[in-house]
């Protein structure tokens, strides 16, 4: 029983990471209807920025907030400079641009920082909270931060005029322009937000998996899965999906099939979910009109 609880908690902790990357994916999807394949590498790059700052003598939280703001700006710039020229290109061409961005970020980071694995500090105490034996303070902290981010995002979209404008721009760009919304900038803003969220995810995952240019590869896959299982247009669903995938991965890996095939089986399960519920648990079912 203890062993099971341990795995569930560990799953929730990694799930929190998947959830925040998934959240970033859903953000860009909502704003642009594209799934950003470069999301993981953007987060990884941001984490390296944070690492440089901490190494240069910044305090953790100073580096944290600076990285989040810098990532936001970077996200906006990437949209304006790289994505904007292909705004009207076919979907798959845009996907190729994302893939290009992915390999560029990965390669450039490896070039600047080398592929040597680095440690990354956690802002949370090393002693487990309340002396529990299941879950480290960092894991609890990471889950907490994910939930805070979700709450902030929800409030932003639900209650601010800018949030409303972003939703409107994503849904109906033509009408959005007709009420005066600068749709292009809304897309850029969506990218900025997603990059900022991604950077938080990166900084939360780095203490666990260590820092290297390929650290987000596996995470991105699970985050995709989480986003789709939850429903790609639902931020809450993405977070739920993240936790679900995290727990499934750990519990299945430990007790059912062993670590060798856990990736494969977790993914088979996810496909199973999608076949039964093709729009995910919380996604909108699109009725096709003729």
């Amino acid at each position: 029983m203890d062993a099971l609880l341990q795995q569930v908690f560990a799953g929730l902790a990694t799930g929190g990471i998947y959830a925040s990357v998934a959240l970033a994916l859903v953000m860009i999807y909502q704003a642009t209807h594209h799934l950003n394949f470069a999301q993981g590498e953007m987060a990884m790059f941001s984490t390296y920025l944070a690492w440089s700052m901490i190494n240069a003598g910044f305090g953790y939280w100073a580096a944290f907030f600076l990285t989040v703001s810098l990532s936001f700006v970077l996200g906006v710039v990437i949209e304006r400079v790289i994505i904007r020229p292909v705004e009207n290109a076919p979907v798959l061409s845009v996907v190729v641009v994302f893939i290009g961005l992915l390999v560029i970020l990965n390669s450039v980071t490896g070039w600047i920082y080398t592929y040597t694995i680095k440690t990354f500090p956690s802002p949370f105490p090393t002693a487990p909270l309340f002396g529990n034996k299941f879950v480290s303070s960092h894991q609890i902290g990471a889950i907490g931060i994910t939930l805070v981010v979700l709450l902030l995002l929800f409030s932003f979209f639900r209650f601010t005029p800018l949030g409303l404008a972003m939703r409107a721009a994503a849904q109906n760009p033509v009408s959005a322009k007709l009420v005066g919304i600068r749709v292009g900038w809304m897309l850029a803003l969506g990218w900025g937000l997603a990059a900022a969220i991604g950077s938080i995810a990166g900084m939360m995952v780095a203490p666990i998996v260590f820092l290297d240019p390929n650290m987000m590869g596996g995470i991105l896959l699970y985050a995709f899965a989480a986003a789709l299982v939850g429903g790609v247009d639902s931020p809450g669903g993405a977070v739920f999906g993240g936790f679900l995938v995290g727990v499934l991965e750990n519990v299945l890996g430990a007790f059912v099939i062993g670590n060798e095939l856990k990736l494969a089986v977790a993914l088979v399960l996810i496909i199973g979910v999608l076949v039964v519920k093709p729009s995910g648990f919380f996604g909108k079912v699109n009725v096709s009109r003729v």
Binding site: V97, G100, V103, I104, N106, S107, W111
Partner: peptide, 10 residues
């Protein structure tokens, strides 16, 4: 090299 490949793609 992958960065160059990426630039080619884009």
């Amino acid at each position: 090299p992958w960065a160059i490949f990426g630039i080619f793609m884009i």
